[in-house]
């Protein structure tokens, strides 16, 4: 039944396309979002779509350890890390990114430009292999860029952490796109690292709040501190 198989292939392709669309959209939404809690939720959404993409790729390519990576993705990045961050945000008094270094419309436009650049950079690489997930290359690169931009342009630590995690998600997508995922052991290591990093960030946020209660260091590297104090 070649027609049927083609149809399946087509549906898989479309599913990947739609997933990657949502993936990218959630990255843009993080850029456009002021509320810290929403940023974290959007990150969770992004990770969810990433896991879903990985699943579809696993199905399409028959590389079965990707299923495992996808499951880990759902568990750690779409559930555990957002939980940790949400709790951290709840304890902070800072709820919003009040004044980003670059205002939001400009940020959006800059990220649009980064997307075009990513597309441009990935053009020569794209020609090399006829993989199913070719387009994800540009998308992964774009998400990495956007994550970097979030880290650069936002003042609040939580948003910067989300930016960092976005970069990681982009890298995961890149790995999936180029080689259908890294060896399982590397994948596991990365997940573990990310988890530890998120834990450390969470603890760090509390620590900052606990130790520097009344001081208002204007030049502090962690600006939350200043705004926490009543």
């Amino acid at each position: 039944m070649p027609v049927f198989q083609e149809l399946i292939h087509d549906v898989q392709g479309q599913a990947i396309n739609v997933c990657s669309m949502f993936l990218l959209l959630s990255s843009f939404a993080i850029v456009a979002q002021r509320s810290l809690a929403s940023c974290v939720s959007l990150y969770a959404m992004q990770s969810f779509f990433l896991g879903f993409t990985a699943m579809v790729v696993a199905n399409a390519s028959g590389v079965h350890h990707l299923y495992f990576a996808a499951a880990l993705n759902f568990l750690i990045k779409a559930w555990l890390i957002p939980r940790i961050l949400h709790r951290a945000v709840d304890r902070l008094n800072v709820k919003r990114e009040v004044e980003p270094l670059v205002n939001i419309p400009s940020s959006l436009l800059i990220c649009g430009g980064l997307m075009i650049l990513a597309l441009y950079f990935s053009q020569p690489i794209k020609q090399i292999g006829p993989l199913l997930t070719n387009d994800s290359l540009a998308l992964g690169l774009a998400i990495v860029f956007i994550g970097c931009f979030i880290m650069i342009s936002r003042r609040k630590l939580v948003t910067q952490i989300v930016g960092f995690l976005t970069v990681e998600n982009g890298l995961f997508l890149l790995a999936t796109a180029i080689t259908y995922g890294m060896p399982l052991i590397v994948e596991l290591g990365v997940f573990f690292d990310i988890l530890v990093a998120a834990l450390i960030f969470g603890v760090l946020l509390h620590r900052i709040q606990d130790t520097v209660e009344s001081a208002r260091p204007a030049e502090s590297r962690f600006e939350e501190v200043g705004e926490v104090a009543p």
Binding site: L25, L108, L109, G112, M115
Partner: peptide
């Protein structure tokens, strides 16, 4: 400007995705 910036980005992504998926 934020809302319409978002609309602009959506439209831009639509164009980009079209060309990307066209191959």
């Amino acid at each position: 400007s934020e809302l319409l910036g978002a609309a602009f980005i959506l439209a831009l992504l639509a164009v980009i995705f079209f060309y990307m998926f066209r191959g």
